[in-house]
Structure formats: C-alpha cells, structure tokens
Design a protein around this nucleic acid. Sequence first.
RNA 1: GGCGCGUUCGUCUAGUGGCUUAGGACGCCGCCCUCUCAAGGCGGAGAUCACGGGUUCGAAUCCCGUACGCGCUACCA
Length: 489
Amino acid sequence: MINSQVRVRFAPSPTGYLHVGGLRTALYNYLFARKNNGKFILRIEDTDRNRYVEGAVENLIAALHWAGLNYDEGPDIGGPFGPYMQSHRLEIYNRYAEELISQDKAYYCFCTPERLEALRQEQQRQKLPQAKYDKHCLHLSKSEIEENLLKGIPKVIRLNVELNQKIEFDDVIRDHVEFDSNNIDDQVLIKSDGYPTYHLANVVDDHLMQITHVIRGEEWLSSTPKHVLLYDAFGWERPVFAHLPLLLNPDRSKLSKRQGDVAVEDYRDKGYLKEALINFVALLGWNAGDDKEFYYMDELIEKFSLERVNKSGAVFDLQKLNWLNAEHLRKKSDEEILSLLKKELSNSEYKGQFYSDEKLLLIIHAMKERVNFVKDFIYNCRYFYEAPMEYEQKAIEKNWKEDTPQQLLRLKTEFENLVNPSKEDFEHALTKVAEELKIGKGKLIHPLRLAVSGQSTGPGMFDLLFILGKDEVIKRIESAIKNIKSVKA
RNA sequence: GGCGCGUUCGUCUAGUGGCUUAGGACGCCGCCCUCUCAAGGCGGAGAUCACGGGUUCGAAUCCCGUACGCGCUACCA
C-alpha cells in the first residue's frame, strides 16, 4: 500500500440524471484524487436491467463535464482497467462468484420468489427480530444441486454468511463501526438473470480497478459489512472507507424530487453557475476549519481532506446557493460575462436583434452589482433592449405629478441640444434644468427614470441615459409624456 | 420491529477538557453611503450546545442512558 497510487471512483447507477447528492459524492472523490495526485474513475453501475433508462449515461457524463469533474478513466474514454460499464463485465462477476462457490463461501439457491415471500411473511408473523433467508439451499446435496442445474431451474448465488461473527471496519468519517453477522442476510450475489447485484459487482470492480478509497454516501454504510465479508472471502485487501453524510430536504428527510430540484441539470438550466454549485455543494458537509466560504475548484483541491468531512446530514439551502451564485457572477470579468450573456440572449425573445458588444459591456458594467444570474442582465433590465411597454403602477403614483410632463419636456429640449453626449453631459443638462426650476435633482431623476425605463429601480440615472443614447432617450420621453396624459386623465 | 449512523443560532458550520459572556456565513432587522435598487460599511435579534445522569477543580468537547431524526433491512442501487 505504501507505494500505491490513490485511485477513487464515482460509481453511479444511470437513473437518467445526475442527482446533486451524487454531484457532491463525485466532487469529494475528485477533490481527493486531485489533492493526492491520484486517479479519478467513472464507473457505471448498470446491473439492474429493469431500471435501464435511454440516454442516462450520456446525461450523466454531460453533467459531470459541465461541472468540471473530469475523470481519468471511464466508459467513454476507456482506461487500463476497462470496461467501465458493469453490464459489459458479466463474465468477470460470474467467474468470481463461482470461485466463492468452490470454496463454500457462496452457494446456489433455487428458492422461488413465492417461497421467499412466504418465508418473509412467516418471520413477520412470528415477529422475529430480523428477517433473513433461512439457508435452505445451503443444505442441498451435491447431486440435488447437479440435478437442478441440469434441469435449468432458475437460480441465484448467495453469500454464505457465517453466524456469530463480529464484523468490524474503520471509516475515515465514522471511525470504528461494528456489526454482528447474525444480522446480515445471505446476500444474493448473482441474480437469476445472470447479472450481479451491487454488492458483488462493486467489490469485484473496486478490487480489479485497484480502488484505494471508497468514498460514497451514508446509505451504503449498512451494506459495508457485506462488502467487507466479500473482501475477506476473496482474500483481498480492503479499501479505505469514507461514508459521506446525506443531503437533506428542508424538513430533514433525504433530498428528494418531491421537494424541489435534485438534478444538476435543473440547476444548470435555471442559470446557476457551475462554480457556484460546486462551491456550495463542497461546503455541505465539509469545511477547511476557517471562515472561508468562497472557493474556486483549485482552492478546494488544495484544502480538501476527508478528515474534515462532517458526520451529520446537511440541508440543501437555496438561499445560500443564490448568494454564492451572485458572488461568483460578480467576480467574473465583464468580458467573461459578455459571452455568457450573448449565449443567454440567443435563447431569449431578443435573439433576432443586434446589440453591439460595446453596448452589452456597458449593460454588464451597470448591472453587475444588481444581479444574481446571467439572465438577470436581460430580464431585470429589459429597458436596455426595448422601450418600456408599460410603467410600474406604484411608481406612477409616487413620481408622476401634475407638472411632470412640463419638466420632462424641459429635459427633452435640453437633451436635444446635446451633441454626442457623454454620461457627464446628461448630468450637466439635468442639473441645469433642476437649477432653473429651483428643485432638487431627485425631483427630476425619479420621474425621468420611470419615463425612460418604466421602472423605479435600476442603475445610476446617467449611466442609464448614456447606455440608451440621446435619440432613444428623447423618443422615450416623448412617449412617456403621451402616456402620462392618458394615465393621469 | 431489528441493525447502523447522527443531534451546536431558521439554514450551512467553527469548536477535539480551561483562550467561549459559544465564533463566522446565508437569511432577517436597523443605521450609514445614496437619484432609486443593489453592492459595500457598521450594528442587532437569533443556540439554556436534543434531554438526563456521570467522570473532572473545570465539559459543547470524555463515558453511560433516554428521546428524536435519518439510513439500511429486495434477485434496487
């Protein structure tokens, strides 16, 4: 072990999308691998034929790539220990299961689902503390087994769990954990369709792929004794185990679809930045021990350690994610945001229109401190892209008074005299009007803002006017004056 | 039911026997800045550290018990 390289894997079953809990598991594996100059492997655990979902693997891979969790070996890129899709490794599992049988550490079981069901019911009726298979087929004679096999009676292969054994293992996160083998069922290893169960496939592959650290969700803690038994039965060295705390709904149940979005794709489509999602999810169950909350991937790699992972579940709090998203967005350069904004625009109702990079950059600069998402650069300030169709009702009542049309008219003529006005020119013009009318600048700014943007909030007045440009400003003042008359009539 | 794991402000968490009148962050509230909204700055409310016993001069921190929550208990992963 001293010289062995760290090798970890993310081993999802392809359910159709990448769960955010899965994203965090993948992230911790990734961080641990990168931190230790190890390898990060993607392995698809598709051993349940009933759960086959078209395109699921492709989705999973796309989500992982989007998040920046690039693996060193995997189904699409191969590697020295492939194939990385369990459904392509069936012979391997069967070979190892047979090996166990030859050593009496596993056995064929021909029991029908009906008998199993009846057994379960009987055990329940007797209120036995634990429902387990009764090892009926363990006691079949050699000839009976031969005969059943020859007849082609459906069979499974079960692990032969010895009674009265103490099974113990160490977990980086949970410390020492102990189980009594009397509580452990003779787990099915190979199903009647010839596919392995998770337990066998997982252990065999982790060994064959030379996985050194098994970092997975806490839901696997209870099955770890079965895995430990398998490692021991094969005479293989156990990996280091690290069982991660679960991600929870606000009501503290396991994070589920019912109570919100759980797919990484959902968050991506809602406009969350991958940097923010990664940052957020990394902090759900781990921290460096200091007050730092804002991280980029390379800093996470540098600081990460399994020892500092928490034991208890963490609620997925959208408000904090939103804050992190805004933080990450603000930290981006205007040029970086520009390309994100252009992509967003090409998917918006404004996709046919042309907006120069110059103008877009001005919008970005003006709005950067006021947005949480890239799409807010469009929908929080539509007035940059089109003249207002209507005016905020509350703001009309507050800002548009009897003398507003006159004042706007006065501003309009003043603006008309400007030649290629800068932001400052607009400001001087407005100041001049305010002085002439003997009123505060605010008295002009608020009605003007409403006239020109339809809203009562936004970036600084003169930034707004400058970005819109003289001609557009004048046009909007004119139509606002008309609207005031009809509104106030 | 059985087995396992967990339990510090609403949420994410710091804390590994004295530095703690339990610190930070999100959210909330207030003030400042200010043409609005943000951002930023300052401040506030918010946790008898689940509960009960021990150990100790001293416990959120160690031990035991209880409660509650979650996970597993499939030829699902």
